[in-house]
């Protein structure tokens, strides 16, 4: 096990960073907000994290916090500015935001290292620190998938007008979605820059959106379990199949395409739907109709 860990430490770290990146794209999607800003937040987290390490000699935990908070602050502004947008328009505005972060990375002078990027970002980051950070986000995600929070998030996503009539402040939920997306994306970016000790414009491009989207679309957008499944799948797939490594992009494209057509709710959605169908079959037949016929006598009396 230890030998396995030593041999795969880089990819194990990448898996956990991938989970956070996937979460940062997933959180807004769960709220029905088609924001791809997670990739931009990742870039902000990476460059802010890199800078505070190089310039202020910060260690891993405070540097991750700086990256996450900086990205969340940008997320708050973005969420407020884009509040009136929906659907495709919002999606494209956030894609433009991601690309803008890439332009800033190229043109940022000494703060971003220009086209070559930043080097020598060395910290005390260890796997346990990564595990704790990712764990915090996953626990928060799990809590949001239970009880009152779960019901309200479902309402905000599926039917914002209905949600408003149920006393839910849809706009506030959406802005919070941007902020949480910023926290997760920023933390993911900061941890990534520390595990690799370097960051450049090529690392924050549109490719990130595609990678995260692949994970979410295949894993499932409605639960953190989908994000985790997708992140593990697409971090390890190129390792397991060398053919995939060479044609990675092509495989991703085909997978996104097929999942987009045939599996809109991802693997997690497939699992949930199957379980529900089996449960419905186990219930006595015609129960709903029977209840339906019971009512009139009491009610019309």
């Amino acid at each position: 096990m230890n030998a396995f860990y030593d041999g795969h430490v880089v990819i194990i770290q990448a898996t956990f960073v991938g989970i956070l990146l996937a979460l940062s794209i997933q959180v807004p999607l769960r709220l029905g907000v088609f924001s791809f800003a997670g990739a931009g937040f990742y870039g902000i987290g990476a460059y802010v994290g890199g800078n505070v390490v190089i310039r202020a000699d910060l260690q891993a935990v405070p540097a991750i916090a700086c990256g996450a908070v900086a990205a969340a602050a940008v997320g708050l502004v973005l969420g407020l500015v884009l509040q009136r947008l929906n659907g495709l328009y919002l999606a494209m505005a956030t894609v433009a935001f991601d690309l803008m972060i890439g332009v800033v990375a190229v043109n940022g002078g000494e703060w971003t290292g220009g086209p070559t990027g930043l080097y020598g970002i060395l910290t005390d980051l260890t796997l346990p620190i990564i595990l704790v950070v990712v764990g915090v986000f996953l626990v928060a995600a799990e809590l949001s998938e239970r009880g009152r929070a779960h019901r309200r998030i479902e309402a905000v996503r599926e039917d914002p007008e209905l949600a408003a009539s149920m006393g839910i402040r849809v706009g506030a939920y959406r802005v919070v979605g941007f902020v949480v997306s910023g926290l997760a994306g920023g933390a993911a970016g900061a941890m990534n820059v520390m595990t690799r000790t370097t960051i450049g414009p090529a690392d924050v491009g549109f490719g990130l959106v595609i990678l995260a989207l692949t994970m979410i679309i295949v894993g499932g957008a409605l639960s953190w379990k989908g994000a985790v499944a997708g992140a593990i799948l697409f971090t390890w797939l190129p390792q397991v199949l060398t053919f995939v490594g060479e044609w990675q992009e092509l495989v991703y494209g085909c997978v996104v395409l097929l999942a987009g057509i045939f599996l809109p709710r991802g693997l997690y959605g497939l699992w949930v739907d199957t379980r529900r169908r089996l449960a419905a079959r186990r219930r006595p037949p015609a129960l709903s109709e029977q209840a339906h016929q019971d009512v009139p006598q009491e009610m019309t009396s």
Partner: peptide, 28 residues
């Protein structure tokens, strides 16, 4: 995608995702 979508809203975004997927293939 349109044939498999229940609402226009969900079709919109699935078309966006399908387009992203379709675009990756020639790029790759």
């Amino acid at each position: 995608i349109v044939a498999r979508s229940t609402s226009e809203r969900s079709a919109d975004i699935r078309i966006l995702i399908g387009g992203i997927g379709a675009g990756i293939i020639p790029l790759a």
